[in-house]
Each structure stands twice: as structure tokens, then as C-alpha cells.
Design a protein around this nucleic acid. Structure first.
Lengths: 224, 224
DNA sequence: CGGCTCCTTGAGGTTAATCAATCCTGGTGG
DNA sequence: CCACCAGGATTGATTAACCTCAAGGAGCCG
């Protein structure tokens, strides 16, 4: 692949946007471009781990699976974000990752990345900040799991509206069964919860578009 | 406080053990020593955040509180560990921290620390590794919360035995109601779960000491 | 039209939180 | 020495949440 286009891809990632050209060039030398077909598994929980990834195109989900086949989504990775950063400590992946559609990633080998940081500390600070952000996110996930399902759903919807810059309307970016996994529950329970929201006049639903009718009530519910 | 003893304290922390004397000296210049009385709150969820901490003596717990007064412990911080690293990204603390006994910490202001990393990238790599480790831990916590209480308890006990380097015996380092919070449940449920373990012949309990009688069964249960 | 997949609805069972009562255990003071 | 108390820990009964299994729709594509 053309080195210049790699550098462009890296610069497009918010994570690396602030780096100087020289720093990006060095980063590019250790970035291994990789195509992923939709549905393809990037790695499985427990796999030997020596690299983390930057998603440049497509969509990837990071999830955990259990004996009984149930699975819970930890993150939906969007382009510009890294995933599997925990490889910098562990030598096996603590969760699995799968491409949800045809995607493109850059692979960074742990050891090469470590050396790069010593050379260009700015990159280390950038990744440190990203990881701090992820820790806040994981913390939220934990907090959510201690709340009942309707509260988790309310939180998700409010977040979604905020992310889509609309106070009252949003579109579900993922299928309902994906959302159920993201909330740590099953489709049936999600369906019922949504239904109760509609009957309670909190929201209106049409296909994957939904409108917030009673935001205060939704916010109250999100607290617990 | 004597600079040399600060450096010694920092070197004693596994986190910083590998740093060179010069690096430790620089780190020491931005480390603010601080005493904490037992029961004292270090910071509260939502507080303005501009510093993270290294615990050098005592015990600190990081926890979340909910409207209904329920609380869940995220971490029991032991000497040598840092906490509130997420401040490197966020400007408010995502959880609360409290000294469980008389303790001593070093406070690191975010901005000073960021500058230090640019000067001494080695320190950045060290913290990056620590945060990666914490992310693995948070991942485990999430995984646990999706399991039934007995499975969480089994995992905790097995971990505890491993940590105390004894295959069959361990002592609870915290009170039962603390353990309940750590497992994301209530004392009543914990009590019943322990009771069922005893009646099932999985473990034997005497005060805060417990013996693993049927490790395979416990491991099976830990899977779910 | 069949055969998909996804979503919804219903009935039933299990888990665990809640509320309330009781039981320890260590400390206190008569 | 013993009654008494306060706190945590246990036990029981009840209730609510939510997972499971099973059975329907609804949309989509060959």
C-alpha cells in the first residue's frame, strides 16, 4: 500500500490527528494494513495477543461470549478508534472482536509500538489519553450493568440522541438484537422494555427511528 | 518531606520499580505526598478532577454510589498501585474513592505529569502498561457482572487463593458486606451463596478463613 | 409461494433484591 | 459476673426482574 495514503488514514483518525507529519510517518512504518470481510473474527477471547488495532473503515464489535452462548457487547468500535489496547499489558485477548461489515484496520505489533513511544513520546501521551477515555467508558458499562434493564435502555437512548445532535430524535444504528447484547440482555427483554416506554408515552417508535416524547421521565428512569 | 524518601517510596511501587534513578528523581519533583485518615474521602464521583494518585501505604477503595444508596466497589487499591488514572482523559472523576484505613498517597497533577512523560517517555510506557492492565481488570469485572452471584463468588474465592499462594486455603481480607459490594450484590445474597457452598461441600468456613474442599466443582461453577 | 431472519408476544420458572426478624459477638457499665 | 446494647451477619418470606422456551407475525429474497 502507498505510504502516503497510510499516513492520510492515520491522520484522519481523531486519535492521531494532532501528531506532526514526522511522527505520523514513523507511525506509518509500523502500521500493517489489513482488510476484514464482514462477519470475520479479528481475534477470540484467550487468543495469544501481540498487536492492537486501529479501525479506519467499517465497523467492529468487541464482545464477550459465555458457555451458554449468550454474549455481551463491550464496544462498538467506529472508524478512527483503536481497540485491543489492553494487549500492551496482557498476552492474551480478554475479549473477542468481529467485523460487523467489510472493514479496514491497521495492525500495530506491541513490541514495535513500545519502541516507537520511546522515540516519539507524543504518541504515548495520545494513546494514554485514549486509554483513559476507554477506562471511563468501561466504568460506565459497569455502572450500567448494576442498573435494571429499562434504566440501561434509557441511558443508551439519551446518549444516542446526544451523539446524533438531536434532542428528541434518533435512529438506532444497530439491529435490535445487537442492542440487546450491548445492554447485556436478550432481545425479548429489550422488546418488552421498549414497548413499555411507548405505552408509558416516553417515546414513539417507527422502525429504527425513535422520538423522545418525555425526556424528563426518561432521564429520571436512567438514574435508576 | 525528604526527597530521598519520596524516591524510595516511588521505587517501592511495582509500577515504577523499573525506572532509573534520574527518572525517579524527576517523578519525585511532581509527587505531592498526602496523608489520609481512615474513612476519609479522597474524591467523589463528579468532582472536578486534575490529579491521579499512587497509594504508598494503607488501603483505598474505588466505588460507585447510586441514588438508592446502594454502592458497588470497583477496586480495592493496594499499596504500590495508582488510581484515578482516567483523569488523564476526563475532567471529572467517574467514581469515588475512600481511604479504608489511615493511608499515605502521592498526588500527581495531570498537566505536570503530561509534561513529564514528554521528557521521560519510559514513564509513559510504564503507565500505559498499568492502564492496559487495569483495562483487563475492568473487562473481567464486566464479565463477572453478567454471571450469577454464585459464579462471581467462586471466581473471587479462586482468585483469592491464587493471590495468597495457597491452593486450598485463604482468608477474607475484607468484611462480608464489603465483599458483597465488591461482587455487586447485597450481604443477604452473599450469605446465602456461601451457605450453599458449605452445604454443597465445596468449601468450609471458619470466621474469615475458608478452605476449598472441592476445587473442580468451584471452577465449574465459576464458568457460570 | 416457501424459506429466511428478525422481532414480538405469551407463559412459566429461576434468580436475586427487599423487608423484617433473629442471632451472634464484642464492648460497656452496673 | 452478668445484663444490656449496637453492629454486623444470618435466616425466612415475599416480591419483582428477567431469562427461557415456545409460538406467532412481518418483511425480504429466491
Amino acid at each position: 500500500m502507498d505510504p502516503a495514503s497510510v499516513i492520510d488514514d492515520l491522520r484522519d483518525a481523531p486519535l492521531f490527528a494532532k501528531l506532526l507529519d514526522g511522527q505520523l510517518a514513523k507511525l506509518a512504518t509500523i502500521a500493517q494494513p489489513q482488510r476484514l470481510a464482514g462477519g470475520h473474527t479479528v481475534f477470540l477471547q484467550g487468543d495469544f495477543a501481540d498487536a492492537f488495532f486501529l479501525l479506519s473503515e467499517g465497523a467492529v464489535k468487541v464482545y464477550k461470549t459465555f458457555r451458554d452462548g449468550r454474549s455481551a457487547t463491550l464496544r462498538h468500535v467506529v472508524p478512527g478508534q483503536t481497540f485491543a489496547e489492553s494487549v500492551l499489558y496482557a498476552d492474551t485477548y480478554p475479549s473477542s472482536a468481529e467485523a460487523m461489515e467489510d472493514s479496514h484496520v491497521y495492525r500495530f505489533a506491541t513490541s514495535a509500538f513500545r519502541n516507537l513511544i520511546l522515540d516519539e513520546p507524543e504518541i504515548g501521551v495520545v494513546l494514554l489519553t485514549t486509554m483513559a477515555q476507554l477506562m471511563v467508558l468501561l466504568n460506565q458499562r459497569i455502572e450500567e450493568l448494576l442498573l435494571p434493564v429499562p434504566a440501561r435502555l434509557a441511558r443508551y437512548l439519551l446518549e444516542l440522541c446526544a451523539a446524533q445532535r438531536s434532542p428528541t430524535q434518533c435512529r438506532l444504528p444497530i439491529a435490535k438484537h445487537e442492542l440487546a447484547a450491548r445492554l447485556g440482555t436478550v432481545p425479548e427483554t429489550l422488546s418488552r422494555a421498549l414497548n413499555r416506554f411507548v405505552r408509558g408515552g416516553l417515546i414513539a417508535v417507527e422502525n429504527d427511528t425513535l422520538v423522545v416524547l418525555n425526556r424528563p421521565a426518561l432521564e429520571r428512569l436512567a438514574q435508576q
